[in-house]
Simulated scan of single mutants.
Amino acid sequence: MPASTIQRTARPRRSRTRSRNINGRPALVISTLKPHQYDLRPACASLICPDCKTWVSITGIQAKKHKLVPHDTGRAGKDLAVRCQGSNRLVTVDVTFEKWQERLQDGGAETASRRPTTVLPKAFSHRTDQTLRARAERTPAGRVADWNAVLGRVGDVDAARKRMPAGDAPLDGPSVPMTTLHPQRPAC
C-alpha cells in the first residue's frame, strides 16, 4: 500500500482539552520563569513553552492539576504537524495573581528606567547662551523701545533699496518699468 504524499499541517490549538495524558517530565514550576514569560489572568492563563518557545494555554487553572495544552511546534495550518515534547506537561502554579502582577509592574518600571527617554539639548556656545538669556529677560516694553531705536536705520535701508543704480540702461533689452503694471482684461 503506497504511503500518503500529503503532508499533515499543525492543527489549531484548543484552549481547553480533556485529555488525561500526563507528560512524564518533571512539572514546570512557574516561579522559576520570568514574569513576562507567563500570564496568570483567569481568562487566558498561558506561558511560553520552554521547548518550542510558543505561547501555550494552561488547562485547569481553577482546578488542582494544571498542565500545558497538547500543541505542535509549528504555526497552525502553516508548518508541519510535529508534536511538542512539552505537551501535557504538568505545571506547578506557586505564584498568586497579585504577586505576578506586582513582579510584572516592577520589571516594567525597572526596564523603563534603563531606557534613555529624555532628549539632551545641543550644547550652546557662550554667545548664544548670552543672547537667549537676554531675550528671556526682556519685557514687551523693552522690545518696543528696541524696535523704535532701530526704526530710523530700517527706513534708511528700505529707501536705499528703492533707488535705481546710476548708469546707462541696457541697449538690447526692453526698458525696465518704473511703475507696477496692472494689465486689464479685454471686454468680451
Results as ranks from 00 to 15, higher is better:
114 R>W: 06
81 A>R: 14
134 A>L: 04
31 S>P: 06
166 A>T: 10
60 G>S: 12
44 C>I: 06
141 A>C: 06
39 D>H: 14
186 P>C: 05
48 I>T: 14
58 I>N: 04
86 G>C: 08
121 P>S: 15
24 G>V: 13
36 H>V: 08
3 A>H: 02
160 A>H: 06
26 P>G: 12
159 A>G: 01
149 A>L: 15
120 L>E: 07
176 V>P: 01
82 V>M: 04
149 A>M: 10
48 I>M: 11
149 A>V: 01
11 R>Y: 08
140 P>W: 03
146 D>T: 05
76 A>Q: 12
115 R>W: 13
157 V>E: 03
112 A>W: 14
93 V>T: 00
31 S>Q: 03
46 S>T: 07
132 L>M: 10
2 P>V: 05
187 A>C: 14
176 V>D: 07
80 L>Y: 06
149 A>W: 11
137 E>Y: 11
65 K>S: 09
1 M>A: 02
47 L>H: 08
161 R>Q: 13
43 A>L: 03
165 P>C: 05
63 A>I: 07
123 A>V: 15
85 Q>L: 12
74 G>C: 13
161 R>T: 13
46 S>D: 03
169 A>Q: 10
117 T>W: 09
88 N>W: 12
74 G>P: 14
102 E>W: 08
163 R>T: 02
156 D>S: 09
74 G>N: 14
101 Q>W: 07
128 T>M: 10
9 T>D: 01
96 T>F: 09
125 S>Y: 08
188 C>D: 15
30 I>S: 04
31 S>L: 07
126 H>D: 11
162 K>T: 01
11 R>L: 12
66 H>V: 02
118 T>P: 02
36 H>Y: 13
185 R>N: 09
118 T>L: 11
73 T>Q: 11
148 N>C: 06
133 R>P: 00
76 A>I: 00
131 T>W: 05
177 P>N: 13
82 V>T: 04
8 R>P: 01
81 A>G: 03
107 G>V: 01
37 Q>K: 14
64 K>G: 12
41 R>K: 11
53 K>S: 11
103 R>Y: 10
173 G>H: 04
71 H>R: 12
96 T>S: 15
75 R>I: 13
94 D>N: 14
82 V>C: 03
54 T>N: 13
134 A>R: 10
100 W>K: 07
162 K>G: 02
97 F>K: 06
39 D>P: 08
183 P>R: 11
137 E>C: 12
23 N>D: 02
29 V>L: 08
184 Q>W: 04
48 I>H: 09
35 P>H: 10
31 S>W: 11
111 T>V: 03
124 F>P: 07
69 V>Q: 14
51 D>K: 08
149 A>E: 09
31 S>D: 02
136 A>Q: 15
132 L>I: 09
42 P>D: 10
104 L>N: 04
50 P>M: 14
157 V>D: 03
65 K>T: 11
127 R>I: 13
105 Q>W: 08
160 A>P: 00
133 R>W: 06
81 A>Y: 03
127 R>C: 10
123 A>I: 11
93 V>Q: 01
24 G>D: 15
9 T>N: 02
3 A>E: 06
18 R>F: 01
167 G>I: 09
64 K>M: 03
47 L>V: 03
17 T>C: 15
157 V>K: 08
17 T>K: 00
172 D>N: 09
17 T>E: 01
87 S>H: 00
